[in-house]
Amino acid sequence: MAQAAPADTMASVEPEESDTMTIDPPKPTWFFVDGGWDMPGTSIFDGESGKMKGMVETRRLADMAIDPAGKYYYVSETIWSKNDRGTRQDMVTVYDSKTLNLVTEIPMPGRLLIGSRKNNFIISDDGKTGYVYDFSPTSGVNIVDLVKRKLITAIELPGCASLMPNPGVGFSALCSDGSLATVAIRGTKADITHTAPFFSASDDPIFDNFAYDRTRKQTTFLTYTGQIYTAKISATPTVSAPFSIQAAAGIRVGDAKPLDVNWYPGGRQPMALHRATGMMFVLMHKGEYWSHKASGDEVWQVDIAAQKVVKRFVLKEPMNNIEVSQTDKPLLYMNGEKGEVQVLDVATGEEKHKIEKAGGGIITVLEPS
């Protein structure tokens, strides 16, 4: 019969201690990739290292916005008590940016199941107010106090969507009549005005994933045929005359004629803007009008002020979403139908990283203050 080992020779067992990992607040080199239909969550990557930093819990068709102060990630979402059925709940969910822990949920009226759009859920430049697009059954916007974490009011905005901040006023939105609506908030009341129509939503629509520049208080728009507009955002916005991206590259202007093959912009998120330099990066493909969902075979770098294409990048494989880091040495972030992310150095065109299974949805970066 075996004898027990003496107590002093038995291996000591260290008690387990649990801990919680934290990450830094969002940095200018980071980018955020929505998983799309194939993967849950929004993954956080560092563009310099190509390494994943964490993941924000987002459902399909949710929209994420970043607190300008970097303290929180906000998610506007619709969920059901039984996964894909049961009681529907619409809310803005708040996560701590360091721990990624849930902070709170702000109940919302209406139906927030819109998703995959950068401009359905926006935050005011001072970070105090959220504007959440709602469709139940008409277009509207829920206005949220992000400091007190409660709904301020819900307003109807028929025929309008795709929001942008309007500092000191409220917000502005694109409308189906071709105008830009401005919604001035007065407590729980809203005063709505419109510019004159400047584009045709039926003949040459604007891509809804446009770019707002917080420092210049300016929005840059791109149409299906390749027309580029800029709008100064104020209580009475002004919209510039457009110019053609094709003409800026020295080729024939894009048009809406059927079976007319040309270079056109396309993809789910076809454009990105480097705010400091005014350089715009556009996914382009050869096709005809209404091929706006086609992924890009090239990236065209456009100098907005000079109205000139200054560089063209040929891609190894088609890409569907594009963003650019707001850094002195910008990086391009792109993904396609395979869910792989490609990171390019703008200065050299060199591929710095290729990240597999990163996600196929829209890409978000931290905007400069």
Rank of each mutant, 00 (worst) to 15 (best):
M1T: 10
P6H: 11
T20N: 11
M39V: 11
M39T: 12
G41Y: 04
I44K: 00
G50W: 04
M52Y: 04
R59F: 13
R60Y: 14
A62T: 10
A69K: 15
S76V: 08
E77G: 05
M91E: 14
D96C: 08
K98F: 07
G110M: 01
R111H: 09
G115M: 00
R117N: 12
N119K: 09
N120L: 00
K128E: 15
V132S: 03
D134T: 13
L146E: 00
V147L: 08
K148Y: 01
L151R: 00
L157K: 05
C160L: 10
C160V: 10
A161I: 05
M164F: 11
P167F: 08
A173V: 06
A173K: 03
A173E: 04
D191Y: 07
F199V: 06
A201H: 11
P205C: 14
D208S: 14
D208E: 15
A211D: 11
A211R: 10
T220Y: 11
T223W: 02
Y224T: 06
Q227T: 06
Y229F: 15
T230C: 05
T236R: 12
T238S: 15
V239K: 02
A241P: 06
I245V: 14
A248P: 06
A249Q: 05
A256S: 15
P258R: 09
P258H: 09
G266Q: 00
P270M: 00
L273I: 12
M280P: 02
V282W: 10
M284N: 02
A294E: 14
A305K: 15
V310S: 13
V310T: 15
K311A: 13
V314N: 09
V314Y: 06
V314D: 09
K316Q: 15
M319E: 08
N321P: 07
E323C: 04
Q326H: 13
P330F: 07
P330W: 10
L332I: 12
Y333P: 01
N335Y: 11
G336M: 07
E337I: 15
K338V: 07
V346T: 07
G349W: 05
K357G: 01
T364S: 12
